[in-house]
């Protein structure tokens, strides 16, 4: 296959960030299965295919649950990892209501958090991710008031609070779902903190993060996830957080 034979030089222009990045991604991707300990201190990695096996383990706790069957991520082949902690940088973002807020305060407000990164002029993966959030939110029913959904823009200069409000409206976002923008630097800091920065927004990849409570580990979903899969993971995390709390 002639086009694959020259893979390291697919991107020819050596001075661009993207080419440097592409190579790093390639080498990292090929290592990730063999060498579980990646830059983000992921304890281990499970690749989900076919009948899914979800066994989320967090540092300091016993194995929490193993599930299989129709509810678990089988459709989308997402990769799910548990990450004990993401250090949150001291940056301020601008929420879609125009208020300047500290990222850490928004994340640690006590509610379970489900977080993704989007931009409003993205027509391929972002609408799918935002629809997933919308349907996940809907599935929660009355429990919706307990969750905090956060979508951070990776194109903050285009995505003004007004544009974000318009975008949120399209997905019928309730008060529990907020969108965030800010300076380019602040958005970058947030993306780097959660290890989703891929060199530029056009290389933005689908990542969803969820955490049951402050202090609990993050569940990181690389790839697409269906609303049911997300709901399943979410409820599972909430349950195990409760078990730990009452122990």
């Amino acid at each position: 296959m002639f086009w694959l034979s020259g893979a390291p030089s697919l991107k020819e222009s050596a001075v661009t960030l993207r080419s440097l990045h592409t190579r790093r991604e390639q080498s990292r991707a090929s290592l990730s299965v063999l060498r579980p300990s990646r830059l983000d201190r992921v304890p281990w990695v499970v690749l989900l295919t076919g009948v899914a096996l979800v066994a989320l383990v967090s540092r300091g706790f016993a194995q929490e649950s193993t599930t299989e069957g129709a509810d678990a991520p089988a459709v989308t082949s997402a990769r799910i990892t548990s990450v004990p902690r993401y250090p949150i940088p001291a940056v301020h973002l601008v929420r879609d209501d125009g208020k300047e807020v500290a990222l850490a305060d928004e994340i640690d407000d006590g509610r379970p958090v489900v977080l993704n990164f989007i931009f409003t002029t993205c027509s391929s993966i972002c609408p799918l991710m935002s629809q997933t959030f919308a349907q996940f939110d809907h599935k929660l029913g009355a429990d919706r008031s307990r969750v905090h959904l956060m979508s951070i823009s990776v194109d903050p200069e285009e995505d003004t609070p007004a544009r974000l409000r318009e975008y949120a409206k399209k997905f019928h976002a309730g008060p529990e779902w907020q969108h965030y923008t800010g300076t380019v630097e602040a958005s970058l800091a947030a993306q780097r903190a959660f290890n989703v920065w891929r060199g530029d927004k056009m290389s933005h990849t689908p990542v969803t993060l969820l955490r049951a409570a402050p202090g609990r580990p993050w569940v990181r979903i690389d790839g697409f996830v269906t609303p049911s899969e997300l709901e399943h993971l979410y409820r599972q995390q909430l349950e195990s957080a409760q078990t730990v709390a009452t122990r």
Binding site: A70, A74, V75, T76, P127, L128, Q131, T132, Q135, T226, P227, S228, E229
Partner: peptide, 9 residues
């Protein structure tokens, strides 16, 4: 549409 519980458009 998308399979099993996926998002339609």
């Amino acid at each position: 549409g998308r399979e099993a519980g996926g998002i339609s458009t």
